[in-house]
Design a binder for these strands. Structure first.
Lengths: 169, 169
DNA sequence: ATGTATGCAAACCATTTGCAATGAC
DNA sequence: GTCATTGCAAATGGTTTGCATACAT
């Protein structure tokens, strides 16, 4: 779908949400939503803060955190905490469903398109819970780190054998 | 399976890992592993620290963090960051596979036994990635918070109507 | 004997909080 | 005019780091 169309849609959804929850419709809030839906992929608070400072509309960090909270609550933004100390976020709409492959060693996060493991039908079956979104995190070792690890292990084995040899002598 | 049997198994696995990676086999490390595998369910660093302080073996926070890192690396412990500021951990073995239902409002985390959405066969199909473990997080609204939300929204709608009425007069 | 691991305390830094000023309603 | 929201700066607190000591190898 066209991205400007998506923007309009999420803006309307946000407006409805703010009205229903008795929150004020401030320009800051719309500017933040607009900015988030102008990029795809992950972002953290610092990069969002800097990006908006560059652009015409500067908002304080406090307001960013405040607004993200609202966007999470109404399901327009998704939050990830992959293991690093900073939280990552991404827009919820216009983003195909995907898993995250997270390397435990270098921290690299790779996206992996899945076959929609968790179908809407399955979601409905959950008792006493209304699903907003879900995230699948797959932790392991990426190819690059695997090579490093294997090499180290080989080296360690050699060292071990050498030591044993010496002791036996 | 018997839990003492599991303990022995993970201890052996840990020993292999330490040997292979040229790390020292310190009593602290084994005490921590032992402690973690003496309880089921989630725990955070603070509770682990306090629990071990109560017991015979006290270790420093620095060592806890250090050791958890190793246990994560060899896949004996799983780490979760549900949204609160503290990381949660849980043992990886002897824990049936389950999803996590996380309420975005009160932060409650409920476990939900799944039908093994992500099969070993699917894991193998991942290109250039060796899976250690995976986590499925389902974010939404729990029953209790849903009731509160609905009530608030109803109230807001009433207020809105009243205001409109006044303006129209 | 060597160098990794531990324990302590200080440092770090993303996020939260308090409060005065602003502006949506 | 009210009171939620903003922006700033200070506080918070889980986690990390530096360094002297202990101890596994």
């Amino acid at each position: 779908m066209d991205n400007s169309r998506i923007k309009e849609q999420v803006k309307n959804e946000f407006t409805d949400y703010l009205g229903l929850r008795n929150h004020r419709k401030t320009p800051e809030r719309y500017a933040i939503l607009e900015h988030i839906y102008s990029t795809k992929g992950h972002f953290d608070m610092d990069s969002l803060y800097n990006a908006m400072k560059q652009s015409s509309f500067r908002v304080s960090r406090a307001t960013l955190y405040n607004t993200i909270e609202l966007l999470l609550d109404c399901g327009l933004v998704v939050k990830h905490q992959f293991g690093a100390n900073v939280s990552q976020y991404e827009r919820a709409y216009g983003n195909e469903n995907h898993d995250h492959l997270i390397c435990l060693h270098c921290g690299e996060v790779r996206e992996h398109k899945n076959g929609n493991l968790f179908t809407p039908a399955q979601q409905k079956k959950l008792q006493r819970f209304k699903t907003s979104y879900y995230s699948m995190y797959i932790y392991g070792t990426c190819n690059k780190c695997m090579r490093v690890k294997k090499a180290e292990e080989k080296k360690n084995k050699l060292t071990e054998n050498k030591n044993t040899g010496i002791k036996k002598k």
